[in-house]
Design a protein around this nucleic acid. Structure first.
Length: 278
DNA sequence: ATGCGGACCTGTTAGC
DNA sequence: TGCTAACAGGTCCGCA
């Protein structure tokens, strides 16, 4: 579901619970990503009796930290995951797999119909975690180095869209913003990575950051069912210019092209064949 | 080593 | 109205 701007938005909406004490934990008992069962004991040890001290974001991952604890809780929302604050008496959300009971009758609920998400305990340095350790630079917190990306791309024949979706290349790009950034940089999504010039890579790095920042300003996209931790929705879908716009005319002024859809890396990809040409 | 396709899940929507 | 097929914001694994 969420790409970097949505995850960052969730992170920000969790700030009201910083300082709150976790009093208990309820889980669904269902397995999440990779069929892995939820580590109830580990989560209890990490969180129960402690106060939330911080929420960090690394690409599309969130890390929940607690006062006086060395363990952190890693959360990934997958495609359909949500992390929301609620009151104890609020109606239950369907598909809630982890619910942290907090002081003042509050709850932090993780729900995820498709169960592609992830909630697990991380001990010690998160950079040593197999997924987190391999993450590439985060466009918002670290910035992107076009020269380094260009050098890396020269060694790869994959489509440039596949390249920027690779979380070890750039952390946080997802399927929507990959199309948006490539459109903005005027690069055909199917172009082999090693055929992207340095000039174009500079444009792409800037475009990736720009679409992320703009999405964040609009509170994350709400293409389907995205909601923030407080239950409010984002309105970014109005600002997407190519994603899910197959058959519409190209939004670029003076371009007579029509947005097309094709499958790259098994995912819908939207582009204008007129402005995004070799 | 790299790159691709399929698998993992459920819900929603478009089309008949 | 009801059924079916296609599709959905992500990641990982196995095989070429």
């Amino acid at each position: 579901m969420p790409e970097l701007p949505e995850v960052e938005t969730v992170k920000r909406t969790l700030s009201p619970v910083l300082g709150a004490r976790v009093t208990g934990l309820v889980t669904s008992g269902k397995a999440l990503r990779l069929g892995r069962p939820i580590d109830v004991r580990g989560l209890e040890r990490a969180a129960v009796g402690r106060r939330f001290s911080a929420v960090h974001r690394l690409g599309k991952y969130l890390l929940l930290a607690f006062d006086g604890g060395t363990e952190q809780i890693l959360v990934h929302l997958g495609m359909s995951g949500r992390l929301r604050l609620a009151k104890r008496d609020d109606p239950p959300f369907p598909h809630t797999h982890v619910c942290f009971e907090l002081t003042r009758r509050r709850q932090l609920r993780f729900s995820d119909p498709r169960r592609f998400g992830q909630v697990e305990v991380v001990l010690g340095d998160p950079r040593e975690h197999p997924s987190l350790g391999k993450l590439g630079p985060d466009p918002l917190t670290e910035g992107l180095d076009p020269e380094a990306l260009h050098r890396q791309a020269r060694r790869s024949t994959r489509a440039i869209k596949t390249f920027i979706l690779d979380q070890t290349v750039i952390a946080g790009v997802g399927n929507i913003y990959a199309s948006e950034a490539l459109f903005q940089a005027r690069i055909p999504p199917g172009l082999a990575s090693n055929r992207v010039s340095l000039v174009r890579m500079k444009a792409l790095a800037a475009a990736v950051k720009d679409v992320m920042v703009r999405a964040l300003e609009h509170g994350g996209t709400s293409l389907r069912d995205f909601v923030h931790a407080d239950g409010s929705t984002g309105d970014h879908s109005h600002y997407l210019v190519v994603y899910d716009r197959e058959g519409h005319s190209c939004p670029r002024r003076g371009c007579a092209g029509t947005i097309r859809r094709r499958i790259i890396q098994g995912r819908s990809t939207f582009y204008c064949p007129m402005c995004q040409s070799r």
